[in-house]
């Protein structure tokens, strides 16, 4: 992708941001100062950066995972559910084995089990799509709702912590501190950030330089082309969803082990933990390039963090970010489709 195209996409994304800033008027803020505050709270202060990177960790992992099936135009909207199941599985491992096995082994085990959980949750919609043509957007979304209620039940039943019973707010018991992912020395950033960067780099090579990545791209360009060239479409789609679901599960594990330390219920109306949904615009904005996703996830993570602060200070509801994400999706798509050179050429002919 050339530099002109990237500038063009960035321009359209900011156009989307500008348009969504109009809604600040509803809260007696001028659009530009509202937008300025939002970006300042996300990126302007040291503390803001720490919180932004906290948001970025699960977001980056999920979005990179989404870029795999999206490359094949298989629309996995179910990352949220896969993320939740990963959280549940990993927390269960942490609470069961914490004092039995050494911390490093516990972390490794939780990561593997989180991957398995997410991958399992991604399978029913995938199989339904491949063998009966069910629209994967609907089925993956339905799986999200089921996961949300499963989590609600688990934190108020099987995995309910003793302290939660006292407070009356359902959460699990905390993972022991020594089993948590350590902070990067000298900072307040969880080493989960390094894990997410490594995942992004690995996935860049997976999509760009392997036969698997190439075949997914062909499938995305059209099932006919792919089947003529002898690609096993079903196998590759299933594989892409195992990877995507599994990686979303790993994101859930890293979120619990690196940030929250307990399993917290997430309602589907709760935008602040909707990493699985936010991952969709993050991946699309970067044209599904895992290295680009590093930047877009920091960008949208910062907006999410800024919106948190704005809800606290100016009573601007955090739901505004979902609108911003929707508009950014539309405008980045226009930016990608929009061909500047074509329009310039047309002018010359005239």
């Amino acid at each position: 992708m050339n530099i002109l195209k990237i500038i063009q996409i960035v321009f359209f994304i900011f156009l989307g941001l500008l348009i969504s800033s109009v809604f600040f008027i509803l809260f007696k803020l001028s659009p530009l100062s509202g937008l300025g505050t939002l970006l300042y709270e996300g990126f302007g202060t040291e503390n803001g950066w720490y919180n932004t990177l906290r948001m970025t960790i699960p977001l980056l992992i999920i979005s990179v995972g989404l870029s795999v099936p999206f490359t094949a135009k298989f629309w996995n909207i179910g990352a949220q559910g896969q993320f939740i199941i990963g959280e549940i599985f990993a927390t269960w491992i942490g609470l069961t084995f914490a004092n039995i096995v050494p911390p490093l082994l516990d972390i490794a085990l939780a990561m593997v089990v989180g991957f398995v959980g997410g991958a399992l949750w991604a399978m029913p919609p995938t199989i339904m799509k491949l063998y009966s043509g069910a629209n994967e957007i609907i089925t993956t979304l339905m799986m999200n709702f089921v996961a949300v209620y499963l989590l609600l039940w688990i934190v108020s039943g099987p995995l309910e912590g003793a302290q939660a019973k006292l407070v009356g707010a359902p959460t699990s018991a905390p993972i022991p501190a020594m089993d948590m992912l350590p902070l990067i020395p000298g900072t307040q950033i969880s080493s989960g950030f390094l894990i997410s960067l490594i995942i992004a780099i690995v996935f860049f090579f997976l999509l760009r330089y392997t036969k698997f990545g190439y075949e997914l791209k062909l499938i995305g360009e059209g099932q006919n082309v792919a089947s003529y060239s002898g690609i096993n479409i079903k196998r590759q789609i299933i594989l892409s969803m195992i990877i995507s679901g599994g990686i979303s599960g790993v994101a859930g594990m890293v979120y619990v082990y690196g940030i929250t330390s307990t399993l917290i219920p997430q309602f589907f109306s709760d935008v602040s933990t909707s990493f699985g949904y936010v991952g969709i615009p993050v991946a699309l904005m970067a044209s599904l390039n895992p290295l680009g996703i590093i930047f877009t996830s920091i960008f949208l993570g910062g907006i999410l963090n800024g919106a948190f602060v704005m809800e606290a200070i100016y009573s601007v509801p955090i739901d505004l970010v979902i609108t911003i994400y929707g508009l950014i999706m539309i405008f980045s798509l226009i930016g990608i489709m929009f061909d500047l050179s074509k329009i310039l050429r047309r002018k010359k002919i005239k």
Partner: peptide, 8 residues
Amino acid sequence: ALWFVGWG
């Protein structure tokens, strides 16, 4: 995207 816009 329109779902997101309407939801938010």
